[in-house]
Amino acid sequence: MKKAVLWSGILLLAMAFLLTGCAKNTGESAETSFIQIKGSDTEVNLVQRLAESYMDKHPEIDIAVTGGGSGTGIAALIKGEVDIANSSRAIKDEEIEQAKANGVEPVAVAIAMDGLSVIIHADNPVEALTVEQIGKIFRGEITNWKEVGGPDMEISMYGRQSNSGTFVYFRDHVLKGDFSPKVKRMNGNAQIVESVKNDPAGIGYVGVGYVVGPEGKQVEGIKVIKVAKDENSPPATPLDPENVKNGSYPLARPLYQYVNGKPEGAVLEFIKYELSEEGQQIAVEEGFYPVNPEYAKLNEASLN
């Protein structure tokens, strides 16, 4: 009888341990020690770097960061599969409705600023384009570089897949219409950069963190063109942080993270680290820019 009682106690302890481990992985409570993050390809390297730095200081916390695109990350948050969704675009109204129907309340935090960069081959003499010209190129209305002051050469376009937040942002803010069927769909920013490097007629769009190398130098083999809001505005480069901060670069955007409700516990502490002076410096080192005052107000409302 004593042996039976002993084994029953051991079994109950084992079950309690397993249940505790499962609860820990859901990220639902302030006691969580495992954070699951998924989403934007633009943000994945930055957030991996932030996670590694944070885990070095907090070995009791495990953080897993994967990409897949902004839409994939938001879908995972809606399904309750992740604690944080990285997104380089704002969440859509229909996604908010889906989330609420599933008992999820999406809350946004901006962790950095991006100057979405339009890149061409380094040997292409074109230096600047307006937003309208870029839109016409990717809609297929401008098909030869000579139409915008370049060589007599058919334009070759590289873009992202439709689950990408960058795809959605670029479509909504630049094209304001549909992409040309001739746009080659790439899996990520790095693939676009490599494709344009090897294509003298190429043009693509990527997060600024993918075109800035060590010490803030532009990646070799490509040119980041200046962009003007319209033909009456001066063109600006995203490589100057001040242009992104003050809005003179027309394709500046926030990089978001979405959580379910106001964050707490380990998730809150990690987000606070991302927004700390050290975290924002890591964003700069990764080629992005600190959160500007406008989105700092958003963060204040989301976290307090």
Rank of each mutant, 00 (worst) to 15 (best):
D93F: 07
I78K: 01
L46R: 00
L77K: 00
A51Q: 06
D41E: 15
V82F: 04
A51R: 04
C22L: 13
A101T: 09
T72R: 07
I74P: 02
K24I: 07
D56S: 14
S40L: 05
I78Q: 02
A99P: 02
E81L: 10
E52I: 02
A101Q: 14
T42P: 02
D62W: 05
A76V: 08
G71E: 14
A90L: 14
R89Y: 02
Q98E: 15
K92T: 12
G21S: 08
S87F: 01
I74F: 09
A75S: 12
I91L: 06
G71D: 12
E94S: 13
A101S: 13
E52M: 06
N102C: 02
E97V: 14
K100L: 14
A64I: 07
A23Q: 06
K38V: 05
G67A: 12
R89K: 14
G71Q: 11
I84M: 06
V65G: 00
L46Y: 02
K100C: 02
A51G: 05
G68N: 08
E97K: 13
R89T: 09
T42S: 15
K92N: 08
I63L: 10
I37Y: 04
E43V: 03
G39P: 03
K92D: 11
L50N: 02
T26W: 09
S53A: 15
D83G: 15
D93H: 08
I63T: 12
E43P: 01
I35T: 01
D93C: 03
